[in-house]
Simulated scan of single mutants.
Amino acid sequence: MLVSKYFVWFIIYSFMGWIYESTYCTIRKHHWENRGFLHGPIVPIYGVGALLASILFSEFPISGMQEASNLKIFLICFFGSIVLEYTTSWALEKLFHAYWWDYSNVICNINGRVCLPASIGFGLAGILVVRVIYPFVSGMTHDTNVYLMEALSLVFMFLFGMDMALTISALTNFAKNFNRIESEINEQIASAYEKLDTKAADAIGNMIEKSEQIQESAFVRKELAEEKAAALRERLTKERLESLFLSSSAAQKSTLLSIQGFKRSKDSNELRQRMRTMIDEKRHNRQK
């Protein structure tokens, strides 16, 4: 019964988080934003945070917690949100080479994963959860029949599991196709280089044997080869990424459009950056 109750609370909190996140982003960007990692109307990180706050300050008989002052609640939720948000962002990026939020342009941020204004907001939200939302949710579910509560938790678990599986499958398939495309482009570029080298070598062989002329020709050959290879990579990249996006399922497209960027680290390659630009364009066109 306890697990069922907490899972139902988790879903309720996650739904409230989705409402807040989507509303805030919609107002800020002046167009509808369906926020979250999953397809459904829930943001799990809010559910986890609010559930932990409810358990810590109200459910478990921990000394000094149930009588905690607003300042104490704020500080614990402030620092707790930093740990939760940074860990979640890091884990998602390690697993899927992508990130769903980015504070890089916000003051006092750490690697774009957490920032001071957001953490202050979560600290204040912790007070709201403990003082207002938790009593409401607890009271709403307190008199619910045990069997009904268990049935609700099973339904929510099934839907949550399906959504999670669908999202992970979409991201995994995309990663596989992405790596395949990257390999194919590199192979075609390498093949184009070989052809250019062969033609240039034949041209040099027919020239008058003068050292300066050979060096100049080699330089020109290198410049032309790099220019043609760059143009070829540009065309292939655009074609392959467009093809990958268009051939994706509705679930995959929805997942891709929710991503804010790919891999913040320095080894984030050009193809991923181009994919991010293309997704931004698709998202912008969809909102028109």
Rank of each mutant, 00 (worst) to 15 (best):
G112P: 01
A91H: 06
F122A: 03
K94N: 12
V129L: 10
K94G: 07
G112M: 04
I127M: 10
I110M: 12
V132Q: 04
L84Y: 12
H142W: 15
L124R: 03
D102W: 08
F96A: 02
W100I: 01
I107T: 12
V114P: 00
E93F: 06
T144Q: 07
F122N: 02
V130C: 06
A91R: 04
Y86S: 00
D143F: 11
V129D: 02
A118R: 02
Y103L: 00
G112I: 01
D102V: 09
T87R: 09
C115S: 14
F96N: 06
Y99P: 05
I133T: 08
A125N: 01
D143W: 13
N105S: 11
C108T: 12
G126L: 08
W101D: 02
V129G: 03
T141D: 03
Y99H: 13
R113Q: 09
R131P: 05
H97D: 11
S89D: 03
H142N: 13
I82T: 11
N111S: 13
G126R: 03
T141P: 06
E85I: 12
V132W: 15
V114Y: 00
L124N: 04
L148V: 15
R131K: 12
G112A: 06
G139I: 13
C108D: 05
H142A: 14
N111R: 11
H97K: 15
L84S: 09
F122S: 05
V130M: 10
K94L: 13
W101M: 12
T144H: 06
V114Q: 01
G126W: 03
L95G: 09
I120G: 06
C108S: 07
S104N: 14
A98P: 03
V137T: 13
Y86I: 04
D102K: 09
L116R: 06
L128A: 12
V83S: 02
L116H: 07
D102G: 06
Y86W: 04
I127S: 08
R131E: 15
P117D: 10
E93I: 00
G121A: 06
L116Y: 01
N105D: 12
D102L: 09
Y147E: 12
L84P: 03
Y147A: 14
L116P: 13
G112C: 08
F136Q: 12
N145L: 10
C115K: 05
R113P: 04
L84W: 13
V83Q: 07
Y103P: 00
R113A: 07
V106R: 05
S119H: 10
Y134V: 13
V146M: 14
H142L: 14
I82Y: 08
W90Q: 00
P135E: 08
Y86A: 01
L92H: 01
W100C: 07
L95V: 10
P117V: 08
V114L: 07
E93W: 02
T87H: 03
T88R: 04
D143N: 15
V114A: 09
K94T: 06
I120P: 08
I133K: 07
G123C: 09
L128W: 13
N145S: 15
V114F: 02
G112D: 07
G123K: 05
G121P: 10
S104M: 09
I133P: 01
W90H: 03
T88E: 06
